[in-house]
Design a protein around this nucleic acid. Structure first.
Lengths: 177, 177
DNA sequence: TATTGTTATACTCTATAACTATA
DNA sequence: TATAGTTATAGAGTATAACAATA
């Protein structure tokens, strides 16, 4: 039951005098378990760690997680519009514009005119983008192997399954706003 | 085996002509599964959803996740120094300064001089801070109940256990930077 | 009228560096 | 020398609003 503090109350007001002024508290180890019942807290801490490891592992190709996801989606679906990509990855359209500006400048992606809708662009990887994505995928696999090591391969798989199911349910249910 | 694309290759260069120009691709549903093997991707999506729900649920007290974690830690350990809090929650010292500035201005927290080190502050909740934290904890419990509903109570518990174990291992191992 | 890409703004969070006053 | 709190800066990510061109 790591969840026993799920609904723990706040320290009652009468106990809130300084722990340093309180003989019983003096030198006591601070309670690090107060957030144990909060899933979001642990998800956040773990997610930050995972992204930092991803960024470090992919430093040789200078690709960040969001950029990586965009390159992978374009690589698998050349010709998608920017709206399509925004939709699939839940990246704001406005944010994707800036990201593609930068990837374009680096010579990795290309925005061609769409042949069916003159408002939209068909986004592609350049040959260089394809080459870099290949490298990036190898590095990402290294990163993923490290996660398998740290979580344990079974736990990594369980997490992926639970989270994918959650994504389906949470997007089907109601969006939080 | 949701992981079969873990090491999937990029679309080979010869296949990268526009999906719209390619008769076989025309109108095909874009492949949304290309990131299936990437745990970090799903952790991020889920974490964002969870935080948005947290923010929305705690809107009545206008408390964000990071602020909440700080209030909970102070509430349970009155008199901690800012460094202690930074340590426990992995919040940058510089960032915590701004957060406490705001919480102080709102009358929720208090920085008292430490009686053992004139460099440091003993951080406390005001009575109002204690009152608000109580409310916040009730709302956070509602939020957590919603997560239990969406993940399924068993899955929520599994996630917490896996993530807590991961946190212990990843911090014990080597920090990513 | 609605959508696509775009520009602009604001705020949160992360990451640094540097300064001051203490230790 | 090192640490605690602070200030400042820069960048990523998120959330909006508004605009022109096109549907």
């Amino acid at each position: 039951m790591s969840d026993r503090k799920f609904s723990a109350k706040a320290a009652s007001p009468s106990k809130s005098r300084s722990r340093l002024a309180n003989p019983k508290m003096r030198g006591a180890r601070p309670d690090r378990g107060v957030l144990n019942g909060h899933l979001g807290y642990f998800m956040r801490r773990a997610q930050v760690w995972v992204f930092q490891d991803f960024i470090r592992t992919l430093a040789p190709v200078d690709i960040r997680p969001a950029q990586y996801s965009v390159l992978v989606v374009i690589g698998a679906n050349p010709g998608l519009s920017q709206s399509d990509i925004s939709d699939i990855l839940a990246i704001e359209r406005a944010r994707l514009v800036r990201m593609l500006d930068r990837l374009d400048r680096r010579g990795l992606t290309l925005r061609l005119p769409s042949d069916r809708d003159r408002r939209s662009h068909a986004v592609h990887l350049t040959r260089e983008g394809q080459k870099l994505l290949k490298q990036a995928k190898m590095l990402a696999a290294q990163h993923e192997a490290k996660l398998a090591e740290l979580f344990g391969p079974a736990n990594r798989q369980i997490m992926i399954e639970i989270l994918r199911e959650f994504e389906a349910r949470s997007s089907a249910a109601q969006a939080p706003r």
